[in-house]
C-alpha cells in the first residue's frame, strides 16, 4: 500500500511541481497516473521512491515512511524509471547480481527468477553482454527483470511501455495484472490512455501538480454522463480544470 499525505514539492520555491497531493493506493490494484507533459507525474513518482524529498507532507510504503524508515520502505518497492539509467559498463548478469545482492535475494530464488524473467522478456541470450551495447528497449527490459527480482510488494513504473516492443509490452501488462491479482500494488504513469483504460483499476489524473481526479474510468464517465473514451474524458477534465480550477471536487 502506498500512502501520500499532503505532499508538496517545489523546485524553484515558487511553483509547486506537486501540490498538496493526498492519495492512497491499495494492495491488489493497478493504479495509473495520468496527466499532460510537465503535470508532475514523474516528480510524484520520484517523491514516492525517495529520489526527491518532499517539502511538506509524508509518504509511506506498507506503513514505512520513505524519509524516516527509508531502508524498510525501499525494501518494499521496485522502481522502473522512464529513462533506463544503469551502470552501463556492467554486464547484464553483473547488474542482476548486484540488484540481487543489495535486495538480499536468496541464491536459488534469484537464479530461478533471472532464468524465468530473462526468458519472458527475451534477454536471456544477452546476459553476458555489457549493458552499453543494449538498445533503449533492451535496457528497459533488463531494468524490469531487475525490478522484479526481489518480488516487491509495490511496483512503481514511470512510462514503462516506452521503447518496448509489442510482445514485451503485452508481457509487461500481463505481469502487472498478475502482480495486482496476487495482492500487490502496481503504480504506473503513462501517456497512453488506451493502456490506462484497459489495464488500470483506478486512475489518478494530475495537472499542474494538483491531483484533479481519482477514481475508476466508469466514475469519470458517470460524472460527465458521457460514455465516450477515456481520451475525450481526459481532455475535457484537463480543460475544465484549467478553466475553472474546480478539480478538488472530483477527488474521492
Amino acid at each position: 500500500m502506498i500512502e501520500l499525505k499532503n505532499v508538496s514539492k517545489s523546485y524553484d520555491g515558487k511553483k509547486n511541481a506537486v501540490d498538496n497531493v493526498t492519495l492512497n493506493i491499495h494492495g491488489g490494484e493497478i493504479f495509473g497516473f495520468l496527466g499532460p507533459n510537465g503535470a508532475g507525474k514523474t516528480t510524484a513518482l520520484k517523491l514516492i521512491t525517495g529520489l526527491l524529498s518532499p517539502d511538506t507532507g509524508s509518504i509511506a510504503i506498507d506503513g514505512f515512511d520513505i524519509e524516516k524508515d527509508a531502508i524498510e520502505a525501499k525494501r518494499r518497492f521496485a522502481f522502473v524509471p522512464d529513462n533506463p539509467e544503469v551502470f552501463t559498463r556492467l554486464k547484464a548478469i553483473e547488474y542482476l547480481r548486484f540488484i540481487g545482492d543489495v535486495y538480499g535475494v536468496d541464491g536459488d530464488v534469484r537464479k530461478a527468477r533471472v532464468d524465468e524473467l530473462s526468458k519472458k522478456f527475451g534477454i536471456a541470450d544477452v546476459l553476458n553482454q555489457q549493458i552499453k551495447t543494449f538498445s533503449h528497449g533492451m535496457q528497459q527490459k533488463l531494468i524490469l527483470v531487475g525490478a522484479l527480482l526481489h518480488d516487491p510488494d509495490a511496483w512503481i513504473l514511470d512510462e514503462p511501455m516506452t521503447g518496448l516492443d509489442p510482445a514485451s509490452s503485452f508481457t509487461l501488462k500481463t505481469m502487472m495484472r498478475e502482480y495486482a491479482d496476487a495482492g500487490k500494488t502496481v503504480l504506473f504513469s503513462t501517456h497512453i490512455l488506451d493502456v490506462a483504460e484497459k489495464v488500470c483499476d483506478r486512475l489518478g489524473i494530475i495537472d499542474e501538480g494538483k491531483l484533479i481526479f481519482v477514481g475508476t474510468v466508469n466514475e469519470l464517465r458517470a460524472h460527465y454522463q458521457d460514455d465516450s473514451s477515456l481520451e475525450s474524458l481526459f481532455l475535457r477534465l484537463v480543460s475544465d480544470t484549467e478553466n475553472a480550477a474546480h478539480g478538488a471536487s472530483f477527488i474521492e
Binding site: I93, E94, L96, R97, F98, G100, D101, V102, G104, V105, D106, G107, R110, K111, V114, D115, L127
Partner: peptide, 13 residues
C-alpha cells in the same frame, strides 16, 4: 549463469 549470480553482501556488491 548460476555461478555468476552467487550471493554476496551489499557492501561487497
Amino acid at each position: 549463469a548460476a555461478r555468476k549470480l552467487t550471493p554476496r553482501s551489499a557492501y561487497r556488491a
